[in-house]
Every structure is written in C-alpha cells, then in structure tokens.
Design a binder for these strands. Sequence first.
DNA 1: TAAAATTCTTTACATAAGTTAATAAATCAG
DNA 2: CTGATTTATTAACTTATGTAAAGAATTTTA
Lengths: 194, 194
Amino acid sequence: MESKTDQFRKYLKRFVELTDLEWQSLEKDFRTVPKKQYLVKQGQTAKELYFLLEGSARLYYEKDGDEKTTYFFFENNLVGDYLGCLAGQPSTMSIQALEDCKLIAFKYETLTTLYEQFPVYQIFGRKLAEYLFMGLDMRLAELLTLTPEERYLKFISTSIKRKILERIPQQYIASYLGITPVSLSRIRRRIADS
Amino acid sequence: MESKTDQFRKYLKRFVELTDLEWQSLEKDFRTVPKKQYLVKQGQTAKELYFLLEGSARLYYEKDGDEKTTYFFFENNLVGDYLGCLAGQPSTMSIQALEDCKLIAFKYETLTTLYEQFPVYQIFGRKLAEYLFMGLDMRLAELLTLTPEERYLKFISTSIKRKILERIPQQYIASYLGITPVSLSRIRRRIADS
DNA sequence: TAAAATTCTTTACATAAGTTAATAAATCAG
DNA sequence: CTGATTTATTAACTTATGTAAAGAATTTTA
C-alpha cells in the first residue's frame, strides 16, 4: 500500500533520486486545511512550502477590494509562496483552499539547509526553480500573445484543465485568464453560439 | 583597467563567488551583433546564452504576422532563450538587437557540465533560475492585477526604466505592456492632459 | 544636408471588455 | 427537502482598446 509520503517522494523523482537518508532528512508535517481556509496569508512571511496530497487551492492578489486569482494548485503538486520564501518578504498574495486539503508541510529553511548538506538537494533546488520558471514563462507568453478568447480556448483544450473546470468556480478561472466573470460568460456564449 | 570579462565576472558575484579555476572553466566567446540582427531566431534550437556587455535587445513572439515584444535586455545582464536551453526545444520566439551589441557567449551545455564538475556552479544554476523565476512572477502579477495605464505608470516610475524609454521605440514598450502602440499613445496623452 | 525610412500621434469607427444590477441556476446547510 | 447562499448568465450602458489610415515628427543614412 502506498503511504501519503510515498506520493510526495514519487513526485520528487521528477527532479532527483533520493536515498532513504536524504528523503528522511526533509522533515515533514501533515496538515489539513478546510475549504475556504488559508495556506498562505497576504502580509505574513511564508516560512514553509507544501505538497498537496488532496484538494485544490487558488492564489490570489487583493486589489481595490476585489480579488485577482492568478494561479491554481491541485493534488500531487507543490503549493506555497515560493517567491516569498526566496525573497524572505511578506507575501503579497494569499493562497486559499478551494476544497478540503490534505498536505505535507516542510520548512523552506530545512530545504535550504539540505542544499548545503546534500548535493542532490542542490540539484533539486535548481530543477525546481527551473521547472517553475518554465511554467511562468509559458504562461506569460500566453497572456501577452493571446486574446482572452484564445486563452480560454487553450485553457479548456487540455483534458487536465477540463477537470479543473468542473472543480473550480468560473469566476476564478476568469481572473486567471485576466478578465472578469461577466466577460468570460460572454466568451463562453460566443463560442457556444458559433 | 577593467577588462570585458571582468564585467561578466562581477555580475556573477550576485550569485556566487568563483575561484579563478572555476571562472576560467566557463569557455567564453566574444561576439558582436549589429542593430536589427538576431541573437536568437524562432524555430532554431538555442544552444548558448549571452552576457550583454553593451547594447540592448528585445524578445518577441510572432503572431498573425505581427510581433509581440515581451522582454527587453540591457548591458550587464544575461540574454538568451533560457527556456529553450532548459527544454532543449526550438525557440518559440526571437531575440533581436535593438542597438549594436557586444556580448560574451557561452554554451549552455558547458554550463550544465560545470554543474557536475563544481558544486559552486550547481549553486549558481539554482540561484540563476530562482532569480529569473522571481522576475517572471512579479511581472505576471503586474499583468494580471494592473490596468494598462497602471502598468505604464509603474513602468516609467523607476529610473532604470526611464532610461529604457529613451533608448527603446515606444511600439515595443506598448507590447511589453500588453497593448498596441496606438493605445499607449492615448494613455500617454491621457496622463499628460491630467 | 536632404531624402528616405521609421516612429509616433491622431482620427474615425468597430468591437470587446468593464461595471452595475437583475435574474436564473446551482450549491450548501440546517 | 427547503430556504439561504453562492455562482453564472444576461441586459443595458460606459469606457477602453483594437484596427486602419493619414499626417506629423523624428531618426537614419546616403
């Protein structure tokens, strides 16, 4: 039977192969965060990162009273304010559970300590940053080169994202695409009519 | 007197401290690229990265016949298709010299070899990726949370960026901000009138 | 310096998006 | 199951942006 931590260890294999000692050196802490509660709060300095075992979350910025959702997180992925951890600055955004979440927490500081202790973690740190960079780079290119309608079509064109559609309120998807919920509703109608 | 390579070495000190051996192990190649020529061409697989000694460049995507500029590069910074190097895929964008450029080229493969040879390069690789990630993350947040006018005001509010304004055609700044040159012109007028 | 090329601004018009508010639909909680 | 809450759609209106084209200003270069 696969334990919870195995899920996380398996995820790390995308990046590096860890020995048992290396794997155990990363102190892990189980958490549950109920729907609508926060993993990261704006203004507070994030000290830990999470591996999402179950559930989903959204990252949003607050602006003029309303919220701009810019990212989603799903099971079997890392969650957290990576930028905040890197910069050591208070978070400029919040991360809220969209569904009940089960997660594994680990201190960012523990990770940086492991960078020095084990070369393989240094490699992990690099590959993780590279992986996150790639994601953002492609996202940015899409935002700057595609129209809102094109972005929506691209968004729903992957089967993974279709699952997202069923689990996530459309208002959040709208701001992920850089538009208002009303506008997304119109785009959907426009597409349905054609 | 400071030599050309010293400029590059100094830049690297942001990330790591290199011994002479480590520094010399990175094979460097001087290049000049005249204005309007290309450092990276869409469709070709980028194999090297550059350190810009003098001049400036823009990164752009081609879409429906016209160009979307999404990034600028200036002296004393790295240039190149980092994503393309990471992914080993053909570039989806081009990088064009906006002014005559003097640069130091180094093979991405050499860098990855050095990751294995010298731990300090592994650290450099991590910190570089983290640094680039941070830049993209902040940029993305700005694009998704600010209006075009707010983005322009933010853009010109930093003294560094004001220099950019004087060296870079506004049409490119427009698409950097995610709008058309016409729209930028109107925003500028709106601000001037108020 | 003058002609050519490029860049910027402006105008007019069409289109899409934002805003507000009302209604419909779906989801949640007691 | 039903009332309450949240979410999605629609409508009406305003505003900003895109597009195309013309003219002005600037820069390039021969």
